[in-house]
Design a protein around this nucleic acid. Sequence first.
RNA 1: GCCCCCGUAGCUCAAAGGAUAGAGCGUUUGGUUGCGGACCAAAAGGUUGCAGGUUCGAGUCCUGCCGGGGGUGCCA
Length: 504
Amino acid sequence: MAPLARMAPLRIAEQVAAHLPPADFVGRVEVARPGYINLTLDEGWLARQVETILAAGDRWGAVDVGRGERIQVEYVSANPTGPLTVGSGRNAVLGDGLASVLEAAGYRVQREYYVNDAGSQMQKFAETLYARYAQALGHDIPIPEDGYRGSYMVELGRAIAQEEGERYLQMDRDRAVEALRDEGLRRMLETIREDLALLGIHFDRWFSERSLYEDGTFETVMQLLRERGYLEEREGAIWFKATLLGSDKDEVVVRSNGEPGYFASDIAYHYDKFVRRGFDRVIDVWGADHQGHVPRMKAMMKALGLDPDRLIIVIYQLVTLTREGVEVRLSKRTGEIVTLRELVEEVGPDAVRFFLLSREANSQMEFDLSLAKQESEKNPVYYVQYAHARIASILRKAAADGWEATSDRGDVTLLTHPGELALIRKMLELPEVVALSARQMSPHFLPHYAQDLAAAFHAFYRDCRVLDPANEALSYARLKLVRTAKQVLARTLGLMGMSAPETM
RNA sequence: GCCCCCGUAGCUCAAAGGAUAGAGCGUUUGGUUGCGGACCAAAAGGUUGCAGGUUCGAGUCCUGCCGGGGGUGCCA
């Protein structure tokens, strides 16, 4: 503005400040170099917000960024060929946190898990299972060359052998493999569902990849792409001409052996999401190892005549586990992986949620097992939950001492101490944090906010005694303040999928 | 080789193109005749990987380089 107005920035700021319309929430207005206008919230207004926040209840933090848009968050979607890994855990926590924050931000959210129950990996899984099952019954059948080597497959084969006997051996091999595929899939999905439930994660829908082939969606989409000239047969395979749409290479859709590849499913699946089910936007949460697929997905959107910006792909980087500062090596080759379940059992669901959520998706992160399970002041999980439990304790004491702890008594305008006002300011930030997280599709702001909020409470607690028989009016005002703080802490923990303990 | 992500305090990480780059841990030093000390306060600790550029203003945007991770399959 300075060149336009031919005025020094500081002068402009002074002029603007002088002409600001008065508002009840504005306290001091100050101008600072080189041209800032600082507005300070009016303290009386701040104090009154306690009533507003308390009355909002669980809706505090709700904003309307989404304007009721229908949005689908598809996450985890790990192949049902093995147990969930720590990496799947990051996916689960990010996806679920994002879904929660989007709900709070005014979107209509659907949580979905895409089950890869078609394709070559499933076939490999079935053949491995057939071998492990047969082995459990004393037959010397080797697992396939590139089969699944993990010990969980041995256990799965043994479990089926024990519970169902030799019935699969009595079928011919191909039929047995197919039947075991379905039985193994059912059991793997059950395990995955349980593992996720340990973290409090539940999906609205489990979407079968195979169904895309069974209900004709795949054929419909192929027809569409063919008509539009995006398909081409070359060397016996059918290619998607992604280069026509800005991608750097074409992609195989149907392999020369006649089998559709995973990209074929992805096209049909996203057609179903956008065209059939009509989601305004779709979020896919993917590990960094799938990052190379993004351009072809964007090309696919264009080919389907859809705005590529409606598909948001959140990529998260891989997780390194450490214990006592030493990296815990994972070996896929031997099948010795650290599973999500082991992690949850070792450090607890709240710590898993908090730590996996607290890093921005696009950063590689380290998960410190020793820290996460430590029940001490070093652990930020306990720091936040402790604030909640401490308030609960105050409220218990208040009730025991005869205070009307849950009544509406309490004049919040008595709240003028800097510690009280700082706590109120922090509580007022929650809607902004929700809006920011939704706009940036980054739930990692929540754990940081939770720590700040807890810190504001602990600092208040040091300076301000809540229950003081010598000052009943102030005590009731503060009781109302801490009830409000408890509610905001619980809400924040809830958005992160964590528990808010009354005692610890 | 080419493509994507990351590089910020000793460590793990924040930071919406804006002011003096912030937390936690670790280190040092203090704090409770009282509601939960799993708490609080203070101090020390930084050339934001390096070199250029754009901008009134860059940790943030652009170019090149260095380092780490991922991708680059008719696997997912």
